[in-house]
């Protein structure tokens, strides 16, 4: 028996791969649920009910998917060019605090149609700047950006914690460390009334389409793909490698920062250090499940959001630790890696 590299992958296989990976992850997580002493099928029933069982549940799940689409795109765009941006979490927080600071300290009473685009741009810029530091260290000093982006996550969160404890602290926050809220007109409008679901969903989906178009149809898309496939080949073909990677990093960090800004503008209105339950890290799983395809990112984000929101319901109904969601999500990343391997190779007798 030996492995043989496939010449091309049929579309059906590409579409089925993540489904198989998720099924395997759910099966293994099922064993863990059984060990916890709960009926597995009923537990997954509660999970679905928790995620989609009511109007409220469905809108909550979609609300949760919005930052995941954006952080997923941050990872997908970067990974495609072999820029290992694991710093989505830090970029998310920096984007959030930048938007909150701009909204509450600078823009004040300006009308919404001015504030909303300015705040989104501010958040994206902050995220992009944070990723440019590790990229600069890579291009200038040959430092692996995986470690530096990971370390900067801790720095960024401490930085945000410091700001909301001092200069940006809300004087009306009863002493809690939180930033001042942005103005009402700077909040993103609701998509569905009497819910938290906001137009950020549309923005994220449109951006996903845009990225798909850029990657498929533009010179820059081709260049960033080439930079990832073979840096030396790309250089030989006359592609400006450094410049391409800088653009990729700006887009990637920008998406993660935008995710933070949109979470502030769409849901909470202000920043605490509990704004993100690991959106940055989950974004990596989203990107891998989507096989780095921007359209796939939307679906993968909805799946992950389903797991997190549904697991809360399941945990309440069945007394299974809600961490089962994190376990399932990480297992789906691992099984997706294995599944991808088998789509690239086939077994020959």
């Amino acid at each position: 028996m030996r492995l043989e590299r496939r010449e091309h992958r049929p579309l059906a296989l590409v579409l089925v791969t993540p489904l198989v990976a998720v099924a395997v992850a759910l099966a293994i997580a099922g064993v863990l649920i059984a060990i916890a002493g709960a009926p597995v099928i009923a537990a997954y029933g509660e999970l679905l009910k928790g995620a989609f069982g009511s109007r409220l549940a469905t809108t909550e799940t979609l609300t949760r998917a919005i930052p995941l689409i954006l952080t997923g795109m941050a990872a997908a765009v970067a990974f495609r060019a072999q820029v290992w941006n694991i710093g989505g979490e830090g970029q998310f927080y920096l984007g959030a605090i930048a938007a909150a600071a701009m909204g509450s300290e600078v823009l004040g009473d300006l009308p919404g149609f001015v504030q909303i685009p300015v705040l989104m741009l501010t958040g994206a810029t902050a995220g992009a700047v944070l990723l440019l530091i590790p990229l600069w260290l890579r291009l200038r000093f040959f430092v692996d950006e995986v470690v530096t982006t990971l370390l900067l996550n801790f720095v960024a969160i401490l930085f945000v914690s410091m700001l909301i404890d001092t200069v940006l602290k809300d004087p009306l926050g009863f002493g809690w460390p939180q930033s001042e809220a942005i103005a009402d007109q700077a909040m993103l409008p609701d998509l569905v009334s009497r819910s938290r679901l906001h137009v950020g969903l549309i923005i994220a989906m449109v951006l996903a389409l845009l990225v798909w178009f850029v990657q498929r149809r533009t010179v820059f898309g081709m260049q960033s793909r080439a930079a990832g496939l073979s840096p030396s080949g790309a250089r030989f073909a006359g592609i400006p490698l450094g410049r391409t990677l800088i653009f990729v990093a700006m887009i990637s960090g920008g998406f993660a920062g935008l995710a933070g800004a949109i979470e502030v503008m769409g849901v909470q209105g202000y920043v605490t250090t509990e704004l993100s339950p690991g959106f940055g890290y989950s974004g990596i799983v989203v990107a891998m499940l989507a096989n780095l395809n921007p359209i796939g990112v939307v679906f993968a984000a909805i799946f992950i959001a389903t797991m997190f929101v549904g697991a809360d319901g399941m945990s309440r109904a069945m007394s299974i630790p809600a961490y089962i969601a994190d376990v399932t999500v990480s297992l789906s990343l691992l099984s997706m890696l294995v599944a991808l391997f088998f789509t690239q190779y086939r077994i020959r007798k």
Partner: peptide
């Protein structure tokens, strides 16, 4: 990273 995400979430579980 997959091993890290799995091992830590499994620990908490």
């Amino acid at each position: 990273l997959g091993v890290t995400l799995f091992a830590s979430s499994f620990s908490y579980y």
